[in-house]
Amino acid sequence: MQEIINIFVKSIFIDNMIFAFFLGMCSYLAVSKTVKTSMGLGIAVVFVLLITVPLNYIIDNYLLKEGALAWISPKFATIDLSYLSFIIFIAVIAAMVQLVEMFVEKTSPVLYAQLGIFLPLIAVNCAILGASLFMQERQYNNVGEVTAFALGSGIGWLLAIVGIAAIREKLRYSQIPTPLKGLGITFIITGLMAIAFMSFLGIKL
């Protein structure tokens, strides 16, 4: 249990998707103009991460890894399909995003109206594929740890995008040199926020 909480806290603050790995920067810059829309996208990212990362973990462990096919027959124990992982992961993500979209549309029209426009964007958000690839690289022990990692990364991403959106709303009224307006100042402020998040590096879990 303690291990799971550690992974959860670590993936929110220390290994933050945006500030430590720059994943999902494209949508982070494009959709962070107002707090409301960035909240919508953030929740959609948490949602999709929570579904795709554990699913990809299961696929990786029982189909792709070296020796993963041994549960079918001992003959397959030497097969290593891990070179297929990129294409399988992205296929799973694209398919899941489509499924989630249809499911949400049928079951909760209110949620669909809020998330709807963001869901298709998410299939090509690097944070989603990045989380699956990190999951493969870091070798977690079980599905519980992977779920904690997915939830933590999603919440970390949400925190970052809502934070920058709030700052950008205020920035509209401040005087900034013209060439720095918009994109330039957003980068510099993200850098400053990242320095603030670096202070969590000292925490030993």
């Binding site: 060439p179 307006k181 994109l183 330039g184 980068f187 850098g191 320095i195």
Partner: peptide, 25 residues
């Protein structure tokens, strides 16, 4: 990581200062 973000911000600043038509608003 933070310095990469700030450097890109500065590159954008210089680039836009030299190409005025790229500035926002």
């Amino acid at each position: 990581p933070p310095m990469a973000l700030i450097l890109v911000g500065i590159i954008i600043w210089v680039h836009r200062a030299r190409n005025k038509d790229l500035c926002e608003k």
